[in-house]
Amino acid sequence: MIESDHDGPITARSLMELLNAAYALHPAFGEAEIVETGVGVRPAYPDNLPRVKCWKEGTITINGLYRHGFLLSPAMAEQAAGLSSIHLPTTHLPAWRLKMKLIVNGEALEVEATTLATLLKELDYEGGWFATALNGDVVPAAARPEFHLSDGDRIEILSPMQGG
């Protein structure tokens, strides 16, 4: 985060500092891939705090959410609703789904598979050179067909790699 209103392409120094910080946090970031870089200017008041203002009848502005727009949106919406006569809906959308949500090797996925064996097939893992674990417990190859998956399960699929 740099205090500036420059919104041109990312500078070498900005990118370097960001990546250095990530690498210092954990060396595994050294293997991360840079998919995209972007530069944008955050709207901010001098104190970096947001404001909800009622200017005149029928006009409410919300501004200055700075870098916390997503985080503060619900609170700002409530404040704005408090200034108006809007009643926010309290019911949620029905929680129906077709697919199971899993974390596979740290990545969130939605799959149709219901067992570990069918999951591996669905994800195109073939062969005998990898090992699996479900929620931290090792699942041997022979047990995979009977291992039923549940929403939110964490699956690790590991294979041979260089080591010291």
């Binding site: 596979v104 893992y125 699929i157 041979p160």
Partner: peptide
């Protein structure tokens, strides 16, 4: 040798 996460469809480990 070690064990690391295999990328789906990848064959690096193999």
């Amino acid at each position: 040798v070690s064990l690391r996460r295999e990328i789906a469809g990848g064959r690096a480990g193999e």
